[in-house]
């Protein structure tokens, strides 16, 4: 960076950066204690927001167009007359009114839930190793790591791992060695592996080992 690069044609001469930024402490140290405990990733809720915005835009635009048309002495569209008629005819204990109200209420509740919950349940937050860097690990990737570590244990023929937000369930099939030994080895190996994931809330491990062929 100390030489001006004339790639864009006639740029003016760039000043040389004199202080070497590498001398500064690079990323702050890991925040200690509870500060390292960062929360979940929060989804931006783009898709529901886009759908709601589109529907609001369509409804408001249609009403605006029609009302403005009527103001300009053109006849109202048929749907608006039917809507006004329907609203004035239907009683509250009409089945369709009740169904519609129920649907609206459920939809509203769902939108409220979307608005206040973090979402992104598939991403497990990782411990902050540096103050500026937030990281998350997909649950699937965590399951891959645990499965591969479990396969290293002697006596393990096959493994199925399911990682949920607070639990990791490991189902192993062992074709030799004592089941108790295999289970102990698996526990030790996987405890290490879970520590290696570097999550803020390491999932609780439960290991199930069985012989091939026999069902649980």
């Amino acid at each position: 960076m100390s030489e001006p690069q004339g790639s864009e044609g006639t740029t003016q001469r760039l000043p040389v950066i004199e202080k070497a930024p590498a001398d500064e402490p690079a990323y702050g140290p890991a925040p200690s204690g509870h500060d390292g405990d960062q929360g979940r990733f929060w989804s931006a809720r783009r898709i529901p927001a886009g759908i709601v915005a589109l529907l609001v835009l369509a409804a408001a635009g249609l009403f605006l167009y029609d009302i403005a048309a009527v103001r300009a002495h053109r006849p109202a569209m048929a749907w608006r007359r039917e809507l006004a008629h329907g609203l004035a005819e239907r009683h509250l204990d009409d089945t369709w009114v009740l169904v519609g109200a129920g649907v609206a209420a459920v939809l509203g509740l769902w939108l409220l839930v979307l608005a206040v919950t973090p979402g992104l349940r598939g991403i497990l937050p990782m411990r902050r190793t540096h103050a500026d860097v937030r990281a998350g690990l997909h649950r699937e990737a965590a399951a891959f790591v645990l499965r591969d570590r479990a396969m290293e244990v002697a006596g393990v023929q096959s493994v199925r791992v399911r990682v949920r937000r607070a639990h990791a369930d490991v189902y192993a099939v062992s074709h030799f060695r004592e089941l108790g030994d295999v289970r102990a080895d698996l526990n030790a190996t996987l405890d290490d592996a879970i520590r290696g994931l570097g999550l803020t809330h390491p999932p609780a491990l439960s290991v199930h080992v069985r012989r091939p062929g026999r069902k649980r």
Binding site: W42, S43, A44, R45, R46, P48, A49, V52, A53, V56, L92, D93, D94, V97, L98, G100, A101, G102, V103, A104, A105, V106, L107, G108, L109, W110, L111, L112, V113, L114, A115, V116
Partner: peptide, 29 residues
């Protein structure tokens, strides 16, 4: 954008819930 989305979705949801819920409640007696 995340905050805007969530606030607006929440407002629309609350309006739908109140409207639908009140009609349902009154309609059911």
């Amino acid at each position: 954008l995340r905050i805007v989305n969530r606030v607006l979705i929440g407002i629309v949801g609350l309006a739908l819930l109140l409207l639908g819920g009140s009609v349902l409640a009154v309609g059911l007696g």
